[in-house]
Amino acid sequence: MSNDTLTVEIWRGREEGEFQTFQVPRMASQTVLDIVTYVQRNLDPGLSYRFACRVGVCGSCAMTVNGKPRWTCRTHVDKVAGDGTLRIQPLKNLPVIRDLAVDMTEFFQKWTRAQAHFVPTATRGDDFAQVSPDDPRRKEASAGIECINCGVCYSACDTVAWLGDYLGPAALNRAWTLVNDERDGGQAARLKAIAGAGGCQSCHSHQSCFELCPKHLNPTAAIAGLKRATVKAALKGEI
């Protein structure tokens, strides 16, 4: 390897496949997404991958980089390719469509299963709800609200790998923000949805989601909050 090129191994195929090696020119402030884009535009136009915004907003470009799931558009090569090599694979725990693109259907279906959507209670006639930024529940919601649905936590989660019906950190984190939304009217149904098989009690608190979340959210803490909320609801017979 020379200093002005990088050896990049990229997964090719579906569940069955192999790594293909490319030599990519190094550039200043180069991101992993830059590398993949260079390969697709200059070395192999058949390479499949997914991206949209390129600035860490859309959550489309997550891939496994040197063994860890990362948002590739905001991951600098300097930080992850210390020895001058880069191994890029699709996200784990999701079916591979082709090369670096995974099928996110199951990931989003679990958001639906977790009732991770806002259930409005106000009508057109009502004024805007006034929620104080200092309200403890608002603070809990704010701590988890910036999720970009990239799937990094889902890919990093051991429990998702072991337990196929586990809802996963992202869906549960979103459910926790809604449990703390005082305007929401879907609380009982939501707690019921996240308390049963594959729900929040399945979490082992390994905290890989917390360690690798590119937005520095803490889904493990959110899931701990859901465990407390479901226990209270179970003791009161509400679920």
Binding site: A195, G196, G199, Q201, A234, I239
Partner: peptide
């Protein structure tokens, strides 16, 4: 008792 309640109480136990 619902399965969700049973599962949660088992976890608590």
């Amino acid at each position: 008792m619902t399965p969700q309640r049973a599962e949660t109480l088992e976890w608590l136990v």
